[in-house]
Each structure stands twice: as C-alpha cells, then as structure tokens.
C-alpha cells in the first residue's frame, strides 16, 4: 500500500481504485469493530449506583458544567392562575400512605452554624464557634417557619418521567429559612448566607421523618429564590399525600428532589445520599 492516495484527476487504473478501496474498507471494518467494542466495554463496566461507571463519570462532568453555568438570577418561568393544571399524586416513598400526627411534627435541623439569635445576624456571628454548634440539632416548629416572609408562586413541576404540571405553591423561601437558621461556612468562619453563599458548606440533605426517602441538594440550587418550603398547594393546606406539613418545591430540579413531608434538614460539607441517585439516576438532576 502506498502512503498517500493519488491526487485528484490523476490518471489511474481500476487497480489503483481497488487498492484505495481495500485500505478504506479495512479502516471501516476497524471503526465498526472499535465502536462495538467501546459500546460493549461501557455496558459491561462495574455499576456505580445503578449505571456503568463511565456513564456516571459523564453525569458528573455534566453536573460540573451546569453548576458553573447556573445563576440564581435566572428564574424558572412562572404562570398565571388560569394555567394551573390538575393535581397529580406521584410517589409515596417515605411512608406517605400512612398519616402522621401533624400536631406533633417538628423539623429537625442538623449541622446549623448555631442556634438562631434573637434578631440580628451579628448576634449569630458572635455566638459559639461552629465546631460545637454542629453537635446540636435544632427543633423547629411549623409556626416558627411560617413566621418568615410568605411567598406564593405558580411554577411548573417537571417529573423525571417526562410529564409536568403547573401548580400554585405557598411557603417560605429556603434562602430566608437558611438566613434565619444559617449553615456553617466551609472554613468555620461566621456565615453570611445572603451575601456570601459561596463560602457556605456545599450541600443540604433532606429526609422524611421515617428516613424512607431522602434527597441531596447542592447549596446554590437550595438557595435559589424560587426554592420554597411549602405548606399550601393550590390555595389549600397540603394533604399528607402531597407532603404535609412541609415539603420542598424546587423548580430548578426534577420532581424527585421536591421531597414531601420533610422531617430532617442537614447542612453538610459531604455530598449527601439521594434515594433515586442510588438507583441509576443523576445525583444533580438539575433543570
């Protein structure tokens, strides 16, 4: 075989053409075999939480790309009342089919910087250092949460299965909640949730009271202004199937992250476990 194909319009014989063909089809066979080989290789790799690890690695790459592009200044579309669609119950993980005693419910907050000060953030900054405050869980009532500024929003909830519904939600912004009950900074310095969220620990974990359902969130998505802790849906108090007394609404994530019946919230520097991410789904699940 010659190293270079003859140049265009050069006189040639059928023999030349056959030689070029042989070489090109050898390449083609090699390319097809390699493609099948690569495909088989990916399919047969060790499973990392339900998917072959090369695919899990690309999901991680996608997470990094979209985390860098994310801006809390951009918002998910909001709708008018007329666009609200029928309610839909989906997902009963976390024992949602069995009612709990709502009057006895309290939110457990773990890993907070310190107990909330009486009024000002400077009081918070002056209180005990984060290392010993991390050991104390806070117990927060629904009334305390509802004393924060209320927000109503009509947004689309996107199920990972592909369907979506538009619903009206009422609750408090998670960022307001986090400002009142702040996460610690990663380096232990006093947190400034609203002005310097980038210094906070990176994750928020949420769990149902029975621990049966749990989600992990990156801090910047949790602090997005449309991320709400809700107690009302479409003008009515949440039913237990929809997550009473308190559920998360986070339009920058798939429905699976919109955890119902929150029992525990944990601020953490370690990537939290996530119910569906353990079963092959993307951990980030950002929209």
């Amino acid at each position: 075989m010659s190293a270079k194909p003859p140049s265009v319009m050069e006189p040639a014989s059928p023999k030349d053409m056959r030689r070029i063909s042989r070489r090109s089809f050898a390449w083609a066979v090699g390319a097809v075999a390699s493609t099948i080989g690569i495909g088989r290789w990916i399919f047969t790799r060790r499973q990392d939480a339900g998917v072959p690890w090369p695919l899990r690695a690309i999901l991680g790459l996608n997470e990094n790309v979209w985390t860098d592009l994310f801006s809390s200044k951009r918002q998910a579309p909001t709708y008018t009342e007329a666009r609200v669609t029928a309610e839909r119950i989906n997902g009963d993980e976390g024992d949602l089919l069995n009612d709990i005693d709502l009057s006895a419910w309290k939110l457990t907050l773990s890993g907070a910087h310190s107990k909330p000060g009486p009024s000002t953030t400077s009081d918070l900054a002056d209180s005990a250092d984060s290392s010993d405050s991390n050991d104390k869980d806070l117990s927060i009532t629904l009334k305390q949460i509802q004393s924060l500024p209320h927000v109503e929003q009509i947004t689309e909830l996107f199920c990972i299965e592909g369907w979506s519904i538009v619903q009206r939600w009422k609750g408090v912004r998670f960022r307001d909640f986090a400002a009142k009950y702040p996460p610690p900074n990663a380096d232990g310095s006093p947190p400034d949730v609203l002005n310097h969220p980038e210094n906070l620990v990176s994750y928020v974990a949420m769990e149902t009271p029975d621990g049966g359902y749990y989600v992990g969130l990156d801090m910047q998505s949790a602090l997005h202004p449309q991320t709400l802790l809700c107690w009302e849906m479409n003008g009515k108090p949440l039913t237990q199937e929809h997550g009473a007394p308190l559920r998360l609404v986070i339009p920058v994530k798939y429905g699976v992250k919109n955890i119902k019946r929150i029992g525990t919230i944990t601020y953490t520097a370690d990537k939290p476990k996530d119910y569906w991410a353990e079963q092959g789904y993307d951990w980030y699940a950002g929209l």
Binding site: W66, L69, R74, Q75, A76, P77, E156, V166, Q226, L287
Partner: peptide, 24 residues
Amino acid sequence: YKPSDQSWLVQIFAGLDRHETAYT
C-alpha cells in the same frame, strides 16, 4: 434538559400552544 435555569431557550416555544407549556 434545562427548562428552568436556561428557560430563555424553552421560551422560544411558548405560545405555540395555548393550553400546553413551552416545555410540553
């Protein structure tokens, strides 16, 4: 893929159907 964070893109398709969202 990104109907919330990059909603400007999905909004290209808003209004094409009066009853469905741009996402649909």
